[in-house]
């Protein structure tokens, strides 16, 4: 697999059709390379969520191409795209999306089982992932017994456990207070490896300090794309 994990070429996305057509993405081209934490920023309604959905193969572009982890997903069938996501992607969400009935360990392990790991190995990897996000002592707790920051860390463990090449996150810190939000970003920052990239959607300027690259979106078009030097003190630091 080349260095580029996801590449969009002239991607357009229009919701609806005819009179009611809403053009949301306008000829967007961008790349995300391995080893980077990329922030996708922009005002509300600028199309950030739509763009990340298209990049992750959850939505089909109306025009243009998307290459995800070496596959031209805009030309693949639904099930083939799902297979690409299953193999290479992890997701983190604003609202955590954890199964309330399952323990932290099960929430991570069940996804690994779904990805094809044997039950024992899934459990082992899930335990390791929880250790890595600092929740080794909360394995048996259910989401209802965890704080927002802890829930988000379980979600990050779930995204990490399958060893994905690319992790997508949308407003992952929006539901958290500043201190916790920054801790979660530190944690994500620490998960960037030479073979892995993380793409985070946000409109929180404070998160820029953790990014290698910032893409600005406005009204469906890329208006800026700049390198950003992550604060050395923050990068890699973890409690």
């Amino acid at each position: 697999m080349s260095d580029v994990l996801v590449r969009a070429s002239d991607v357009e996305k229009t919701y609806g059709s005819g009179e009611l057509a809403v053009p949301v993405l306008k000829r967007i081209s961008l790349e995300v390379r391995a080893g980077a934490l990329v922030l996708l920023m922009g005002p509300s309604g600028s199309g950030k969520t739509t763009l990340v959905s298209v990049l992750a193969g959850l939505l089909r572009p109306t025009a243009g191409h998307v290459e995800l982890c070496g596959a031209r997903i805009s030309e693949l069938s639904e099930s083939k795209v799902a297979a690409v996501r299953r193999r290479h992607l992890g997701f983190v969400f604003q609202s955590y999306n954890l199964f309330p009935a399952l323990s932290a360990l099960d929430n991570v392990a069940e996804v690994l089982r779904m990805k094809g790991f044997a039950p024992r190995e899934a459990e082992q990897r899930a335990a390791d992932a929880l250790d890595r996000v600092g929740l080794g002592d909360r394995r048996t707790h259910r989401p209802g017994e965890l704080s927002g920051g802890q829930k988000q860390r379980v979600a990050i463990a779930r995204a990490l456990a399958g060893d994905p090449a690319l992790i997508f996150g949308d407003e992952v810190t929006a539901a958290l207070d500043t201190r916790t939000a920054l801790k979660v970003m530190e944690l994500l920052r620490a998960q960037v490896t030479p073979g892995r990239a993380i793409l985070i959607v946000t409109h929180d300027r404070r998160l820029e300090q953790y990014a290698d690259h910032v893409i600005g979106l406005e009204d469906g078009s890329v208006v800026e794309s700049k390198r950003s030097a992550p604060d050395a003190a923050q990068a890699g630091a973890m409690t």
């Binding site: 992750a56 799902a82 992607l89 992890g90 996804v111 990805k115």
Partner: peptide, 11 residues
């Protein structure tokens, strides 16, 4: 939401 998450992950 959780089921959609599983679908996104590739279920």
């Amino acid at each position: 939401r959780e089921l959609a998450t599983l679908k996104a992950i590739g279920a």
